[in-house]
């Protein structure tokens, strides 16, 4: 009986404490700088070295490039299959030019599995939410073109 009263005491003491929960869809969490969310791809930085595709444990990255007038390789297509991507960050770790980076976006739910194939346009427009520069919602390139 005594232990039960002790429990009640602690519960009442808790009333004075600050709330620790976040009203999620209304209040977005700030995940910080290192958060490993959905990728952002900088097409102009990519040198088509293929290292990200090779290090990927689930082989979810596929890319292709071609030589242009300046005799350098340029990226043509860059697709990430988010059905199998495990957001492990190894691709950004090996990228020599930091062309592929991770943002703090994490909401990947879609109505169709096809929408989880993200192409170069979608990945290029994707951006960190907390920088507040671009948000790709409502844009036309919604992926699914593969």
């Amino acid at each position: 009986m005594f232990g039960f009263l002790k429990g009640l005491k602690i519960t009442f003491a808790q009333l004075a404490h600050k709330k620790v929960t976040l009203q999620y869809p209304d209040v977005m969490p700030n995940w910080g700088e290192r958060y490993r969310g959905v990728h952002k791809f900088y097409a102009e930085k990519c040198i088509v070295c293929n290292q990200c595709a090779r290090i990927c444990p689930t082989s979810c990255i596929s890319l292709s490039g071609s030589k242009r007038e300046d005799k350098k390789l340029h990226i043509d297509t860059y697709d990430i299959n988010f059905e199998i991507c495990i957001l492990c960050d190894l691709c950004t770790e090996v990228c020599p030019t930091e062309a592929i980076q991770m943002t703090d976006r994490f909401e990947l739910a879609t109505y169709s599995r096809v929408d989880l194939y993200k192409n170069i346009y979608w990945l290029d427009e994707n951006a960190r939410k907390h920088d507040g520069i671009i948000e790709s919602e409502g844009r036309t390139h919604a992926g699914g073109e593969k």
């Binding site: 995940w31 910080g32 700088e33 290192r34 958060y35 490993r36 495990i86 957001l87 492990c88 960050d89 190894l90 770790e93 991770m102």
Partner: peptide, 24 residues
């Protein structure tokens, strides 16, 4: 852990020969 390695559950923090990040 999230501040240290950018994930809340699947950290992927250590590497053979060290760790990925120094502390923020």
């Amino acid at each position: 852990f999230n501040r240290l390695c950018g994930a809340r559950l699947t950290y992927n923090y250590m590497r053979v020969g060290g760790v990925k990040w120094d502390t923020p």
